[in-house]
């Protein structure tokens, strides 16, 4: 047996806990990532195979060819994130403070959609938004869409689908951060001459920032790479970058472009997160929770 001093063991222990997760990350994330980094710089064709040529032009070509889809991804995912925030905040607020004994039941309802597969849920939206469906007819009745207008195969449908599919990812972190806020802080604020609205703005909202941040990321990032909603509820005119990557990888077998697109998306999102965190204030994010 290897005999280590208590101190050495103390310093080693955390790494031991980190181990399994780290191993998982290396095998299933870091290695494929490096691998795909290599692929993105290859040239060739599906028949003869691809070889590494350090062909950086793939990146610039990908950007200029698929800029529209990139823009659309950011726009759709961003709109869905904002919509989710608007829908989820009052919902999470209600569950955290007003639901009383219905709290757990309501949380169950929020996660209930996860019991069905993602694709199935989106297919269900196809039925809901169907041209002959009840929803379309009601929309036509009240004049929200023209008499022969449709909901399916439109930008609205894709954004609505994304909003729906990612709502729980916004509600749950928001709920956790709101729930954690000590209600006595709100009393203290009103004691110090803040009206309920001011107390919300000056205390509740800043303390909920970590939840807003986490929820936005959990919604925006996967939504950016999503292709299911655009494929099932939209047309090629609504295709997002995820649809392009998917078809390059699986249909056209243009691996270098697919890999390059993935890397561009990843980098763009990383930069976006940094800006977002800076905007919200990192200090608030890390310390508000204390």
């Amino acid at each position: 047996m290897l005999r280590l001093s208590l101190r050495t063991r103390r310093t080693l222990l955390p790494y031991l806990f980190l181990g399994p997760g780290l191993l998982w990350l290396i095998v299933f994330y870091a290695i494929p990532l490096i691998n795909q980094g290599g692929v993105s710089l290859m040239t060739g064709n599906p028949e003869q195979g691809y070889t590494l040529q350090w062909h950086f032009a793939t990146y610039t070509n990908a950007l200029s060819d698929y800029g529209t889809q990139f823009g659309r991804s950011v726009l759709f995912a961003g709109s869905a994130t904002v919509l989710d925030l608007v829908i989820a905040f009052p919902l999470a607020y209600f569950i955290a403070y007003k639901a009383g004994r219905w709290k757990n039941f309501m949380l169950l309802l929020v996660v209930l959609p996860f019991f069905t597969s993602y694709v199935l849920r989106t297919v269900a939206w196809q039925l809901i938004l169907n041209d002959n469906g009840w929803v379309v007819h009601r929309f036509q009745d009240v004049g929200l869409i023209s008499a022969n207008g449709r909901l399916l195969a439109s930008t609205k449908a894709v954004v609505a689908g994304i909003t729906y599919n990612f709502l729980p990812f916004m509600v749950l972190p928001l709920y956790v951060s709101l729930e954690k806020i000590d209600r006595r802080l709100i009393e203290a604020a009103t004691d110090l001459y803040a009206s309920r609205a001011t107390a919300f703005r000056k205390v509740t909202l800043p303390l909920a920032l970590p939840g807003i941040f986490a929820g936005s990321l959990l919604t925006f990032i996967p939504a950016c790479g999503d292709f299911i909603n655009a494929a099932l509820l939209g047309t090629p005119k609504q295709y997002m970058i995820g649809n392009v990557i998917q078809s390059k990888f699986l249909n056209i077998l243009d691996y270098p472009t697919a890999a390059a697109l993935s890397f561009i998306l990843m980098t763009a999102i990383l930069i976006g997160i940094l800006i977002y965190a800076r905007l919200l204030g990192t200090r608030n994010l890390t310390e508000a929770a204390v």
Binding site: R184, E187, A188, T190, D191, V203, L207
Partner: peptide, 20 residues
Amino acid sequence: LPPYKRDVNTVFQSYALFPH
């Protein structure tokens, strides 16, 4: 009158300091 319109202030048992 709600608390914010009353000219008294409270020192709470738990202090209730704003953590942010």
